[in-house]
């Protein structure tokens, strides 16, 4: 770990962190402010939802969701928050070392007296710090929104904490998978399409796996590994799936270190 690289990396991402945090604040606060309306009309709402085909509800993960409870409603919003967090984390993952290469500053950094492993560790920690800030913002805004608009209804604080704690696992998955893909492809010219692809791709996979019932697809996507409705319903994680998630993250990180320390930095061409 090199403090200079860490600081530099963190600063470069600061603006992006602020924007993502603001977007998530708006998303959670705005949608949750509608909770009182939904809660009052709960019976009507659930009836309304029941008219939709089972497959469609499953696609949005709403098949076993009760919008009249605090956590039921919150878990609905949480899925959209997850989508944002996925794109943000993949964005940082894909860009972690590839931006340095596409903007050709890698020569500058790597001709300094630091090892590749040090560079990668510093960059990873800086990105993780940035993600954690966004993460904490989501914690704060979630608790605040529930206090403000939850109409003092009862809910399991433990389950909410479990839900919010899943964010860091979720972010690490996209960060490290984005990173490993960026090292496996020859050159990442633009980060955004990759990040959107990975984020939305995984989301769509989870939607499909909802439509088609029990399929192997849910083994792949973190949107299933850490599905909010499951956590709310059971008050616990789906342990095997979470273990798969963590295993993929660790494998991606290990492979990333292996690849990066052996990587030939492309020259200007």
């Amino acid at each position: 770990m090199n403090a200079n690289i860490y600081r530099h990396e963190f600063r470069t991402r600061l603006k992006s962190v602020v924007i993502w945090s603001l977007a998530l604040t708006f998303l959670v606060a705005f949608f949750f402010s509608m909770f009182p309306v939904f809660a009052d009309q709960a019976a009507l709402m659930n009836e309304f939802l029941a008219r939709y085909p089972q497959e469609l509800r499953a696609a949005f993960g709403m098949d076993n969701m009760d919008l009249s409870t605090v956590l039921g409603f919150y878990s609905f919003i949480f899925m959209f928050a997850q989508l944002c967090l996925a794109i943000q984390a993949s964005n940082y993952g894909f860009g972690l070392v590839s931006i340095e290469e596409s903007e050709l500053t890698a020569d500058f950094l790597l001709s300094k007296p630091v090892s590749r492993a040090q560079v990668l560790t510093s960059k990873l920690l800086a990105a993780l710090t940035s993600l954690t800030i966004t993460n904490l913002v989501v914690w704060v805004v979630s608790f605040t929104a529930i206090t403000l608009f939850g109409e003092q209804r009862e809910y399991e604080t433990g389950t909410l904490i479990l839900l919010l704690f899943s964010i860091v696992i979720f972010q690490l998955f996209f960060l490290s998978v984005g990173l490993v893909i960026s090292l496996l492809v020859k050159r990442v010219r633009s980060v955004t399409p990759y990040a959107l692809g990975l984020g939305f791709g995984m989301y769509v996979l989870s939607a499909f796996s909802g439509v088609f019932g029990e399929v192997a697809l849910e083994l792949v996507t973190p949107f299933k590994h850490l599905a909010a409705p499951y956590i709310v319903e059971h008050g616990a994680y789906d342990t095997p799936l979470v273990l798969i998630n963590v295993a993929v993250t660790l494998a991606a990180l290990a492979v990333s270190y292996w690849l990066y320390t052996r990587r030939d930095i492309p020259a200007v061409s």
């Binding site: 470069t12 903007e103 050709l104 500053t105 500058f108 001709s111 300094k112 007296p113 200007v268």
Partner: peptide
């Protein structure tokens, strides 16, 4: 690299 100075042919900085 502690004792090396490098001036690349194409210079790119942040």
């Amino acid at each position: 690299r502690r004792d090396i100075g490098y001036l690349p042919s194409e210079v790119y900085y942040y």
